[in-house]
């Protein structure tokens, strides 16, 4: 029997006196018939791919496939050349790395879906910014992504992480919970804090719809990635302070599943309502986004 709930995860960690990543890698090697070393090697390759996607995104201003984005990361970088964030360097990095990854995804660049391609900027931007700013060694980097994966797996065992089924809460929301917990791991938090970070993060994103303009993973998806990355770290910091989600993590996941089921299919990746059917979205749809139109956004 594999672990399917946060309650089981906590019990298993406490009983065996093991960290989440240790429980997770034992479970993976048992269920999927690979060694712990092989599993960790695959996780390391994912971290590499995440770093490369950030690097490529930071260095590109090419338009995205749907021509509605691809220029915002450059704007943000330019801004930080002349101004400091009102927070700190870590905050600057998170915003830029999340934009870089999401724009790279929309350009058909190489990314790691985490848990989905549309949400691919959230976990890497949080983790890799912390790796760099806090000088985290390679083994601990791998441990943190395994921790994120375990949180995502528990959520995904109840809710399909697809916008068409659960809305954006299931994609970006799950990514945000994964990032919050992994950040808590990186700062040596206990199991309660790690799970609580996930609960706080998920709870605040319930009901988020998936209404992409013209069906592309661009508007609002690209800009949503930095928002949700920062959101993850707010959850992390509150959890670190001992603030507790009154609703336990497993019940928050139940609520997310129910919310997703009740959400109209018009708001679940079908582009039939919400932002996708705003006046501007319809004009863009009809004009198939002429060059003139996008240049107005770009400047």
């Amino acid at each position: 029997m594999t672990i399917k709930t946060f309650e089981e995860l906590k019990k298993s960690c406490t009983k065996n006196n093991l960290k989440i990543y240790e429980i997770a890698q034992i479970e993976e090697s048992e269920v999927f018939d690979i060694t712990v070393e092989e599993f960790r090697f695959k996780v390391e390759k994912t971290i590499q791919a995440m770093k490369e996607a950030i690097k490529n995104g930071l260095n590109s201003t090419a338009l995205t496939n749907g021509k509605m984005g691809g220029f915002d990361c450059a704007k943000q970088l330019e801004y930080y050349k002349h101004h400091h964030s009102i927070f700190n360097k870590l905050f600057e990095k998170i915003i830029c790395y999340a934009l870089a990854t999401s724009e790279e995804n929309a350009r058909m660049g190489r990314i790691a879906a985490c848990p989905t391609a549309g949400a691919c900027g959230i976990v890497p931007s949080c983790l890799i910014s912390i790796f760099e700013e806090y000088d985290i060694d390679k083994e601990k980097q791998i441990n943190s992504l395994i921790t994120a994966g375990m949180i995502g797996k528990i959520i995904a065992s109840k809710v399909a992480t697809a916008g068409a089924i659960g809305g954006c809460q299931a994609e970006c929301g799950t990514a945000s919970a994964m990032a919050a917990s992994a950040a808590a791991y990186l700062f040596d938090s206990d199991i309660d804090t790690i799970i609580n970070a996930a609960a706080l993060s998920l709870k605040n994103i319930l009901g988020l719809t998936c209404d992409p303009v013209r069906g592309f993973v661009e508007v609002p998806c690209i800009k949503r990635n930095p928002f949700l990355a920062v959101h993850a770290l707010v959850a992390f910091e509150m959890a670190q302070a001992g603030i507790i989600s009154i609703i336990p993590a497993d019940e928050v996941v139940d609520a997310m599943e129910q919310t997703g089921a009740l959400m109209s299919s018009a708001l679940k990746e079908s582009s039939q309502a919400g932002l996708a059917k705003t006046k501007t979205a319809i004009i863009m749809e009809k004009a198939c986004f002429t060059k003139k139109y996008y240049s107005e956004f770009k400047d």
């Binding site: 997770a24 848990p115 797996k153």
Partner: peptide
């Protein structure tokens, strides 16, 4: 079928959509 953590943190793929591109 049992989900793997590797299903959650990957595939490493060309974007922008797991169902429409990687699929």
């Amino acid at each position: 079928q049992e989900k793997s953590i590797l299903d959650i943190i990957s595939p490493i793929m060309a974007g922008p959509s797991s169902s429409h591109t990687a699929g």
